[in-house]
């Protein structure tokens, strides 16, 4: 399997950001109540992650070679401001797209999954295309996880969950079981 394909599958399933790295848990638990909403949040995440990979690559190649110690802070500031700017552009150009994606963009931008993506891509030494594919896989993996979670949560809305665990504890238990199920993908395609 090609390098880019492996990077994609790895970020999508094997090292799923939510279920294997436990990054981005707050939108994962907070916005997974409804299926439609969670899917749109996932799409917004894909969008922000791809922009993040692009920003990280530009920063790493042209700016940070002169000042590597500024990496963390420059990632946060540049990614957040670029996403804010794009949000304004979308609001102006396509109100429909803004209504479906836009409200989630600021929520996602400051999330640990985004910063995690930029740092992982840098540490692994990914180039531009590898970084973009990695971001796409990670974003779609996040979408997959949150959509599955939303389906499970909608299904349990009416069941008699004990009062003791109702709410966030129960959601954490569901995500734990989901994460155990995703362990099955560990080591996929690593031998071939």
């Amino acid at each position: 399997m090609g390098d880019l394909g492996w990077i994609f599958i790895s970020a999508l399933l094997i090292n799923n950001f939510v279920l294997a790295y436990f990054l981005g848990l707050c939108p994962f638990l907070g916005v997974s109540g409804k299926l439609e909403t969670s899917f749109r949040l996932g799409m917004a995440t894909v969008f922000v992650m791809v922009i993040t990979a692009l920003c990280a690559w530009i920063l790493n190649t042209y700016v940070l070679i002169y000042a590597p110690y500024l990496r963390l802070i420059s990632f946060i500031v540049v990614i957040a401001s670029v996403v804010q700017f794009i949000e304004m552009v979308i609001k102006k150009l396509s109100p429909a797209l803004f209504r479906s994606l836009g409200i989630f963009l600021p929520l996602i931008t400051t999330n640990c999954a985004i910063l995690g993506l930029a740092i992982f891509a840098t540490n692994k030494g990914y180039g531009l295309w590898e970084g973009l594919v990695y971001a796409l896989g990670a974003g779609l993996g996040f979408t997959l996880a949150i959509v599955l979670m939303a389906g499970l949560r909608e299904e349990t809305e009416l069941s008699e969950v004990p009062v003791l665990v109702k709410g966030i504890a129960f959601n954490l238990i569901i995500s734990g079981i989901l994460s155990m199920a995703f362990m099955g993908f560990a080591g996929l395609f690593s031998s071939s």
């Binding site: 599955l148 989901l178 099955g184 560990a186």
Partner: peptide, 16 residues
């Protein structure tokens, strides 16, 4: 995959 057996994971994933 990395495991010799995948039945358990396959069923749990499709349960999800």
């Amino acid at each position: 995959g990395g495991f010799p057996e995948g039945m358990m994971y396959a069923i749990l994933l499709m349960n999800a």
